[in-house]
């Protein structure tokens, strides 16, 4: 019975990933090589035009903008998330579970609803402005909503847990005896942090960055709601190509390109870290 259940759950997940992950991605790849046609989804003619179209200054601009925002978001998530993950990983176990529960609690609500909640915090007559005005810290309401700042705040809020969790998992398994050894050898705490803890948590950091960076470029509803529907992210571009311009092949090409960039990034990391792993073991 137990085996059957295991087969079932593995089959279920494998089936899920095949249908909704692999299969839909393959459809996108095929679509990206087809010809655009205004009256149909696509014409069954092989073409590279969709990729050639991506090499124009406008798409380049939005790529850059999107990269910039994603970079800022990733950096901010790292700065906020690393200390959090470190502190939590040093908590007693029961407190750790509690802290993680609290971290994930907001995720029980849909992220679109939370984006609307963020709007009501940031808007002209929102909670933030009302509080700051009544404390006398500002005299004019801050105009945050519908700016890049609002988009960045919204993205950081939504993606922070994806940075914290991989780092926490990494730090939680951290071998404390390494710190003791470093202490015995006379290292100061800052040195230990810099030379022992950070280098050993690099896999967690990179994992977190990968989980934050891609969504930060594509969570189009955040920039729609908080950024005033100005196309700031690659996700907006992909959305508008599918839904507004009705050009599925080019939308597919854009998202395939994005996936390719991410895949290359991960491969480079994997290649480097496997080198490093050997290096590290050799040292031990």
């Amino acid at each position: 019975m137990k085996h059957k259940f295991q087969y079932f759950s593995v089959g279920l997940i494998a089936g899920w990933l095949c249908v909704f992950g692999l299969l839909s991605f393959l459809v996108m790849v095929v679509m990206s090589f087809l010809q655009h046609d205004p009256d149909h989804i696509a014409l069954w003619h092989f073409t590279l035009q969709n990729y050639v179209d991506l090499f124009n200054p406008i798409f380049f601009t939005i790529f850059l903008k999107s990269f910039y925002i994603a970079f800022m978001v990733t950096a901010a998530c790292l700065l906020l998330g690393y200390p959090f993950a470190y502190i939590v990983s040093r908590f007693p176990e029961r407190l750790q579970n509690m802290a993680l529960l609290l971290l994930l609690l907001p995720f029980w609500t849909s992220s679109v609803v939370r984006a609307y909640a963020m709007m009501s915090l940031l808007k002209t007559k929102g909670l933030l402005n009302t509080a700051l005005l009544s404390m006398g810290l500002i005299h004019e309401p801050l105009q945050i909503l519908f700016t890049n700042t609002a988009v960045t705040i919204g993205l950081i809020y939504n993606l922070l847990p994806f940075m914290i969790l991989p780092i926490y998992v990494n730090l939680e398994r951290f071998d404390v005896s390494l710190i003791e050894a470093a202490k015995d050898l006379g290292a100061k705490y800052t040195t230990i942090f810099r030379k022992v803890i950070i280098p050993l948590s690099i896999p967690g950091i990179l994992g977190g960055c990968a989980l934050v960076f891609l969504p930060a470029m594509t969570l189009f509803f955040i920039s729609d709601l908080l950024g005033g529907a100005k196309a700031l992210l690659l996700g907006n571009l992909i959305e508008s190509q599918f839904l507004m311009a009705n050009n599925w092949p080019r939308g597919a090409a854009t998202s395939v390109l994005l996936t390719a960039i991410m895949a290359i990034g991960l491969l480079v990391y994997k290649f480097k870290s496997s080198n490093k792993g050997i290096h590290y073991e050799a040292v031990i």
């Binding site: 085996h3 059957k4 087969y7 079932f8 593995v10 089959g11 279920l12 494998a14 089936g15 899920w16 249908v19």
Partner: peptide, 16 residues
């Protein structure tokens, strides 16, 4: 167990 696996995979697929 391959046959069993296949069966469960089909169950999973048909659910979708």
């Amino acid at each position: 167990s391959r046959a069993a696996l296949k069966k469960w995979a089909w169950v999973a697929l048909s659910l979708f």
